[in-house]
């Protein structure tokens, strides 16, 4: 446990990076996944198949591969982002494929009658989406999105093989130097569980707040 105490600052810095990476990636995944989800239900077949192709491609790949390819392919396209940003992009692209499907199935849980009622009172398609469908869809999406948050948090660990010194990277470097695997990995587990637990708690509260009592 000495190593953990001596290098607590470093470990916390790494944890901070993990948290930041998680939050930014998850937010980006929500935006990208949201756009894809809209494409998935769009009236244009081209957009629907684009989104479907994206989902089926990215979701069938291991996260490690997605992230490594993002880090090394983007510069080849003339886009050299910082490593942090590249890993964020890779992680977000991966999670977005799941978010897209959550959004789509969330919208499918809203009965069709809702849309027809909205249309009957004269709402436009986008008003209907914004005021009627999405608010209701959101309810059934909170739990799976919470799962996705946890997945993002755990997924940040692949950053350590792409040059980002987040929690698991710090832990592994300390382990190479001091050879105290059990203490180091135990402390990392505690921090990861803390992060995912926080995600779970927020999800639970959100769900309670959004719940409608019938």
């Amino acid at each position: 446990m000495n190593v953990v105490a001596d290098h607590f600052g470093e470990i916390l810095t790494g944890f901070g990076r993990t948290v930041l990476l998680t939050l930014v990636s998850f937010a980006a995944a929500l935006v990208l996944g949201g756009l894809l989800g809209l494409c998935r239900v769009a009236p244009l077949g081209v957009l629907r198949s684009l989104a479907a192709c994206y989902v089926h491609t990215v979701r069938n790949l291991p996260l490690l591969l997605v992230v490594v390819v993002t880090v090394f392919v983007l510069p080849q396209l003339g886009l050299t982002l910082s490593l942090n940003t590249s890993v964020t992009v890779g992680l977000a692209a991966y999670i977005a494929s799941y978010v897209c499907e959550i959004l789509r199935s969330g919208m499918e849980t809203v009965p069709a009658g809702q849309v027809e009622a909205a249309r009957a009172v004269g709402l436009t398609t986008f008003q209907c989406l914004r005021l009627v469908v999405l608010p209701q869809a959101l309810r059934s999406m909170v739990q799976p999105l919470g799962n996705m948050f946890i997945a993002t948090a755990l997924g940040t660990a692949v950053g350590s093989v792409a040059g980002v010194n987040e929690l698991s990277g710090v832990i592994r470097q300390l382990n190479v130097q001091y050879v105290e695997p059990l203490a180091l990995f135990a402390s990392a587990t505690v921090l990861y569980v803390a992060l995912t637990l926080a995600g779970g708690l927020i999800t639970g509260r959100l769900e309670r707040r959004l719940r409608i009592h019938r």
């Binding site: 880090v71 090394f72 510069p75 490593l83 350590s160 093989v161 792409a162 040059g163 010194n165 470097q173």
Partner: peptide, 21 residues
Amino acid sequence: ATPVIFQTISQCLQALRDGRG
């Protein structure tokens, strides 16, 4: 110094060319 760690030497070299360090 900030170590920027990759899995293989090929990846490291590409990262150097891309200006990752």
